[in-house]
């Protein structure tokens, strides 16, 4: 459904996307996970035809997004990060407008509009103006506008930013429903937890490059069974490196500086006292310690040596 190959996008000297490739299949939720500024939005903007790639190619439902833009876009539904709705038009009129823009009309349009209103739980407020809605209701309408024409490919650009927990749960249900109907959903987020709970396949992107990709199981396997120990304070990096090397079992050093230390090791909870003792023995001042079980965040830390930047 979406086939991105060697995608590159530059703005002058700044290379926002550096050769991104991935495939997202029908009936799956494909997560593009990464910190802010990693290149997620640029990638999704290229896929939706909003900006032209510098190099590479993108196919949506088999059609090239540049040379066969109209055909490719016919399969696309986009839900932008901001609320892309007309607040002075009723929910009904918003849905009718976006449906008609994709060529729906007459009874087919009315049937789809009513179906979406039912699904997003706004049927009883259909004739009200969105400016009188709650934030969650607006989010749901924003989502509904992207799928009123039954797109085969749905692009969701961080749709839960600023959304309360209850509305977020409702949105997740809607996204899963679309996936179950066979829609290919591309979902960008910088929330690890969201990606873990929602996505069938994932690509982790940082500084414009995909650093890991696969199913959740594949990615977890890359982390292995190692837990992550993170310490912050005032350290002597040289002394610390030597002290850690003497520990049995010896932890893997993921990152080390004069202010922070990240280690990976099995059964870290059992070995934590020994680690802290060894670190203190170097004259270090430990201000904070954190122990994390294997997850995507620890994979990101392992791959990049840094925490996921929000």
């Amino acid at each position: 459904m979406i086939n991105v190959s060697e995608l590159q996008k530059s703005y002058g000297d700044l290379q926002a996307v550096k050769g991104v490739s991935f495939r997202a299949k029908a009936g799956t939720i494909f997560g593009l996970l990464g910190p802010n500024g990693a290149g997620k939005s640029t990638t999704i903007n290229c896929i939706s035809g909003l900006i032209k790639p510098t190099a590479g190619n993108i196919k949506v439902n088999g059609f090239d997004i540049i040379s066969e833009a109209t055909k490719a876009k016919q399969s696309l539904g986009v839900v932008p990060q901001e609320l892309a709705i007309y607040e002075d038009l009723s929910a009904l009129d918003n849905l009718r407008y976006w449906g008609a823009a994709y060529g729906l009309g007459g009874k087919a349009l009315e049937r789809r509009v009513n179906h979406v209103l039912e699904n997003i739980g706004l049927m009883d407020r259909a004739r009200d103006l969105p400016k009188n809605y709650s934030g969650g209701m607006k989010r749901r309408l924003n989502f509904g506008c992207g799928l009123v024409h039954e797109p085969k490919v749905l692009l969701l650009d961080e749709p839960t930013v600023g959304v309360d927990v209850q509305s977020r749960g409702r949105l997740f249900d809607l996204i899963k429903e679309e996936r179950d109907k066979g829609t290919c959903v591309l979902y960008t987020t910088h929330y690890m937890e969201e990606a873990e709970n929602l996505c069938d396949e994932l690509a982790i992107i940082d500084h414009g490059k995909i650093i890991a990709a696969g199913t959740l199981q594949d990615l977890r396997a890359q982390v292995g069974e190692n837990d992550i120990i993170q310490l912050s304070g005032v350290f002597n990096a040289k002394k610390l490196k030597a002290a850690i090397a003497k520990l049995k079992p010896t932890p893997e050093i993921l990152s080390l500086s004069d202010e922070s230390l990240a280690l990976a090791m099995k059964e870290a909870a059992r070995h934590l006292p020994a680690v802290l003792k060894a670190v203190s023995a170097t004259g270090a001042e430990i201000r904070e310690s954190r122990l994390t079980e294997p997850n995507l965040e620890s994979l990101f830390l392992k791959l990049t040596g840094t925490e996921l930047r929000a």
């Binding site: 876009k73 901001e82 892309a84 709705i85 994709y102």
Partner: peptide, 14 residues
């Protein structure tokens, strides 16, 4: 500002 044009850009119009 409200990304309505962004959404419009993904519609099958030139």
């Amino acid at each position: 500002e409200n990304q309505l044009l962004r959404r419009l850009a993904s519609v099958p119009f030139t």
